[in-house]
Amino acid sequence: MSREDFFENIRNSTRLNHFANLVNLAAIDGDIKPDEEKLLKRFSRKFDVSEEAYDRILENPASFPVHAINLKTQRLEYLFDLLRIVYVDNEMDKAEEFLIKKYAVGLGFSEHKAKTILEKSKLLFENKFSFEFYQLFIESDHN
């Protein structure tokens, strides 16, 4: 196996594991709802998950471990994807909050950083931010 093939296998495994994490979060409160399934289908395409892998993951998402990710931007992107699944119903319950914090740590954030990011994310996803924050965000160079 070439070095390129080796790293491609790792990238594919990471995408499958991340997708399995998304499925775990969608299913945490029981059955996967139609809105959640629609979003999962989109993510399966984004992560290039085959139909066979999709079905296998839906059968047993917990069998896929969470892998730490070295790139901060990629960790944040994966966490953002998880938050989108959680907030598909516009709320985060205690079980989802516990699990997403656990995933954030699994992705490579420290316990403290995971808690901080989760609290900030909740403010944004629940639209509980001040006008000053909104103004700062809009006027900053986040493009």
Rank of each mutant, 00 (worst) to 15 (best):
I32W: 15
T73R: 14
D35H: 08
R11V: 00
E77C: 12
E77T: 15
E37A: 11
A104P: 06
Y78T: 10
M92S: 14
E51I: 10
M1G: 15
S50L: 03
F47P: 03
K101R: 15
D48W: 03
G106Q: 06
L79K: 03
K120H: 13
S121R: 04
N24V: 13
A68H: 09
N21M: 12
S13Q: 13
I28Y: 01
I32D: 12
D35L: 13
N9P: 00
Y54Q: 01
L83N: 01
K94T: 12
E59H: 02
L40W: 08
F98C: 01
V88F: 02
T116D: 10
P61M: 11
F19E: 09
G30A: 01
P61G: 13
R75V: 02
M1A: 14
E96W: 02
K72G: 03
K41A: 12
S50K: 07
P34D: 10
R42L: 08
F7H: 09
A104T: 05
Y87E: 06
E96L: 05
R84V: 07
D31R: 04
F109V: 04
D5H: 01
A114W: 04
S50A: 09
R3W: 01
A68I: 03
L25R: 06
N60E: 15
R45L: 10
D5F: 00
A95F: 06
P61Q: 10
K102M: 05
K113M: 14
I32N: 13
K102G: 04
F109K: 05
R3M: 00
P61D: 11
N17L: 07
L58W: 08
L71F: 08
P65R: 08
H112E: 10
M92A: 14
K122S: 07
L83D: 00
F98W: 03
N24Q: 14
L39H: 15
D89Q: 10
L25N: 13
N70I: 06
D35I: 11
A104V: 08
E119Y: 03
N24T: 13
S44W: 01
K38E: 14
D81H: 13
L83P: 00
L99A: 14
N90V: 05
I85P: 09
H112R: 05
D81V: 07
V105L: 03
L76M: 15
Q74V: 14
T14M: 05
F43P: 00
L82I: 08
D48A: 15
D5I: 00
N12S: 05
K38C: 08
F80Y: 07
D48R: 12
E96Y: 02
Y103W: 04
R75M: 09
P34G: 05
V86W: 09
R3V: 00
K46W: 04
L40C: 07
S44R: 08
D31T: 02
L71S: 07
S44N: 07
S63F: 06
S110P: 06
V105Y: 04
R45C: 01
K101D: 14
R3I: 00
L82Q: 12
Y103T: 11
F98T: 08
N90H: 08
R75L: 07
F7G: 00
D89L: 06
K94H: 13
E91K: 14
E4S: 08
L107E: 10
S44D: 05
A104E: 09
I69G: 02
S63H: 11
Y54P: 01
F64M: 05
S2E: 10
F43R: 02
T73G: 11
E36Q: 03
D93F: 00
I117F: 12
L83E: 00
L22G: 07
N12P: 00
N24C: 14
K115S: 11
L79W: 07
D31A: 06
